[in-house]
Design a binder for these strands. Structure first.
Lengths: 112, 112
DNA sequence: CTTATATTCATCCTTATGGGTGAATATTGT
DNA sequence: ACAATATTCACCCATAAGGATGAATATAAG
């Protein structure tokens, strides 16, 4: 982890924990308060609060305060960036296979 | 991190480090030996070796030994699973927006 | 004003990362 | 047999995660 962590780093770190993914799944379907988010888990409210902070660092969620309640909302942009990184690797890989296939086909043609 | 870490966990953990992403980018374009993979980095060969182990745990790469050389190859499947998890959240989010939009439109119609 | 609710802050503990170094192992080349 | 090459193994160190608990803060409700 270099001194300069990118948003993509933060996004993937945030996604790498099952509790945070569950929280995000929940928030993708609509806003919720911290206590509501914590309810399904066996861990302390405090731990959930920390997970929320990591999700905020990744800009995957944002917080709006209404009185004593903190209302969290899903933010889709970082997911898009992470998905695009993955898609790029998948495409490079596919391109490599095609190139290899072309080479092998050419070899085969030479032999005929 | 529960005692039961899933392959998706391992995949996202593996992707969460820039060095490993660089290694994967490289391998997506063709096989390479450990030393070749390590060359672009300022870190020790040993550290690269450890990164490789995490990538193997995630099944993002596989290893084939040829004499004293270990040849690493990219394996696309886990990336596909990770991408699909992301796409699912993106779709849930979009569906939520549409539903909200429908509600607001209905409200508007009532007022007219 | 007092109490209950919603959250975070401050600590503390344990484990996993990420990095380093030196030795061990395996294989190749002379 | 010997030296060079390719990798891992065994440790050591620092920091971040993930969890817990108890206190502090802020707001709502009686």
């Amino acid at each position: 982890m270099p001194a300069t962590e990118t948003l993509l780093d933060h996004t993937l770190i945030a996604l790498a924990d099952p509790t945070r993914r569950a929280i995000l799944r929940r928030l993708a379907q609509g806003e919720a308060r911290v206590t509501e988010l914590a309810a399904p888990f066996a861990i302390s409210l405090n731990s959930v609060s920390k997970h929320i902070r990591l999700l905020e660092r990744a800009e995957l969620i944002s917080r709006r305060r209404v009185g004593r309640e903190h209302i969290l909302s899903f933010r889709p942009e970082p997911l898009r960036a992470a998905r695009q990184w993955i898609e790029r690797q998948e495409r490079f890989w596919a391109a490599g296979l095609e190139a290899l296939d072309a080479v092998l086909t050419a070899e085969q043609d030479k032999e005929d």
